[in-house]
Design a protein around this nucleic acid. Structure first.
Lengths: 232, 232
DNA sequence: AGCGGCTGTTGAACGGAAGTCAACAGGAAT
DNA sequence: ATTCCTGTTGACTTCCGTTCAACAGCCGCT
């Protein structure tokens, strides 16, 4: 079934002089899928979910409506896929870290690239973080996954003081802080990036300190296994 | 035109022994509107925006679809109105404050009632804060208004150290912290309320300190007018 | 080159839900 | 009791997500 392994020369058939809206040729699956995903990303960045109809998307892609449904079972699936792509881009871009950096430096670096992403993709970021469709479980799952990944990186790159439930909630709160501050920052550009970075970094440690301090149910500071490895 | 001032005895016409789904009688405008709003609030708390159709709502209200459109020009308007009602309820409930309380105590009290509201209306709160419809400007406006109101109360009840742009962003971030932490807390009830309150309160001061510290463009600490009055 | 089939692609048709509107009906004022 | 105002109705229209049977480009085979 799947053993065919079609090896197409990856070159477009013929008349490719056109820009984009006339590329009505037969495309390879991955290519087409990637094209549609990229398009969706840019479209949903500037218009909200139900401001764009499937016909709009199909027209913008120079493709029939039916083809979209060939690649994505539903409009919502399409949206979620685009969202997931955006999330992946954000996560990938904030991953690059110098190998010989202190946890502090890593946090700073990650924050800087995070904010750079926010600055570049302003509306897309807002669209991403503000959810998209109201309370859709899949959409919420993507956002949760993104946040959880960030959270995993943070707690892995930090001294493992404690890992109680309060710390978990506190870290979640900190991520909420960064998101809210980022949105506010990108909306009204009235403050240099460095101040945001410094503020968020300082606050991270404050949060950690306060969280470990306020959770008396946890053992004070048991030196568990050293989890200084970084998370994917 | 509007000078009629209909003075109806406020009593339901007749057979009112039924519970609710059969109250197909003629109602006064405000009454009907309030009923529909309350219904919408409870419906949108458990099902998302486009999981419920207008027909569902009308059926649940024991009313025709057309009547809904008589009271609210559009489904989205209906949703926004319900959201605004929820926001108002939240804001009102967190307003009650003892007159002779220190700013710290006020913050604590507000946080406690805030979390109480979250605990009581769990899913409704999540639906409220997670936006509702994707990036809808009206919905976003309601949320922004809610947050801005909270922000106004906070900065008014606190020592007016500085009021620079960084402080503004920082406070916005803190609100994001509280929201994220609240959602996490209500999702996984693994921590007593008091710890969340203590954490958020401590963090508020940390945020303020860090924000004033990191903004060198502001004058260090000029003793301005004492704005210790509370905001509406 | 001719041919058969696999698969990317299409456009018309379907269903359901949002939104409209002209007519209905209950109660108040007379 | 009659009339009028206005809350209320349900059928109709329109738009949009979704389905499906047929079409067409490209490859492998002879």
């Amino acid at each position: 079934m799947t053993s065919r392994a079609r090896s197409r020369p990856a070159a477009r058939p013929a008349a490719d002089a056109e820009k984009e809206p006339a590329a009505r040729a037969r495309l390879e699956v991955d290519e087409r899928r990637a094209q549609l995903l990229a398009l969706g990303l840019s479209i949903f960045s500037e218009r909200s979910y139900d401001e764009v109809s499937i016909d709009d998307i199909a027209r913008a892609a120079g493709v029939s409506k039916g083809l979209l449904y060939h690649y994505f079972p539903t409009k919502r699936d399409y949206y979620v896929a685009a969202l997931r792509a955006a999330s992946k881009e954000l996560l990938d871009q904030t991953l690059r870290t110098t190998p010989d950096a202190s946890p502090e430096q890593e946090i700073e670096c990650a924050l800087r690239t995070y904010l750079a992403y926010v600055e570049r993709h302003g509306p897309a970021y807002v669209a991403l973080m503000r959810g998209g469709i109201g309370s859709d479980p899949e959409v919420a799952a993507v956002l949760e996954e993104t946040r959880t990944t960030f959270l995993g990186r943070i707690v892995a790159g930090l001294p493992p003081e404690a890992t109680g439930p309060l710390v978990h909630t506190a870290m979640r709160g900190w991520i909420g802080f960064v998101e809210a501050a980022s949105i506010d920052w990108v909306a009204r550009r009235s403050v240099p990036v460095e101040q945001i970075v410094a503020l968020a970094k300082a606050l991270l440690f404050d949060v950690l300190r306060a969280a470990t301090e306020f959770s008396p149910t946890n053992e004070p500071a048991p030196p568990k296994k050293k989890t200084t490895k970084k998370a994917r």
